[in-house]
């Protein structure tokens, strides 16, 4: 199953729509709650990043029999130093985002923690693509 979402930039209000939808579909498929949480949290963090840092973007989620693969693509400012950005606590979020409880510098750290495979490609000035893969039945792998 493929799900496509367009995410608007600066729209803190609607952020989370895509991850909530994917969560609901996985729930209907009777996937274990802890697996759903991994996907939902990793995806929500990436979705929020698109809203906070880029000007929105597109999300394609592919639900396969044994894994979920989510591609989040934006044409935002890109990440200058991915290694630094991955460091827990490092953040370039705006004051508004921080006041709302975002920008803790934990987004990429959470994605890394919950994704089974996390790939980030970014070019400053061009944009960022984040790919998250989570296995649905890790015990069988």
């Amino acid at each position: 199953m493929n799900l496509h979402f367009d995410v608007e930039g600066g729209e803190f209000i609607s952020a989370g729509v895509a991850s909530s939808k994917v969560k609901k579909v996985l729930k209907q498929l009777a996937i274990k709650p802890e697996i759903i949480r991994k996907i939902s949290v990793a995806m929500y963090e990436a979705e929020i990043n698109m809203v906070i840092h880029a000007h929105g973007g597109v999300i394609d989620a592919e639900i396969m029999p044994d894994h979920v693969h989510v591609v989040l693509k934006d044409e935002g400012p890109g990440i200058e130093n991915i290694e630094l950005a991955m460091k827990a606590g490092y953040s370039t979020a705006s004051r508004l985002a921080r006041e709302m409880g975002f920008g803790a510098g934990m987004g990429l750290a959470n994605m890394k923690r919950y994704a089974d495979i996390l790939q980030i490609e970014s070019e400053p000035g061009k944009g960022t693509t984040v790919e998250i893969t989570v296995k649905l039945y890790p015990e069988q792998a």
Binding site: F12, G16, S19, S40, Y44, M100, G101, M106
Partner: peptide
Amino acid sequence: LLSVVMGKAKEQCAWITIQGHINIIAVGTL
């Protein structure tokens, strides 16, 4: 801090916060 809550809070917890905007619902449901 929403990311900390998402990373650490357990299911079925009572989440205590001063944030009152709509994103707490997204975090809470996730």
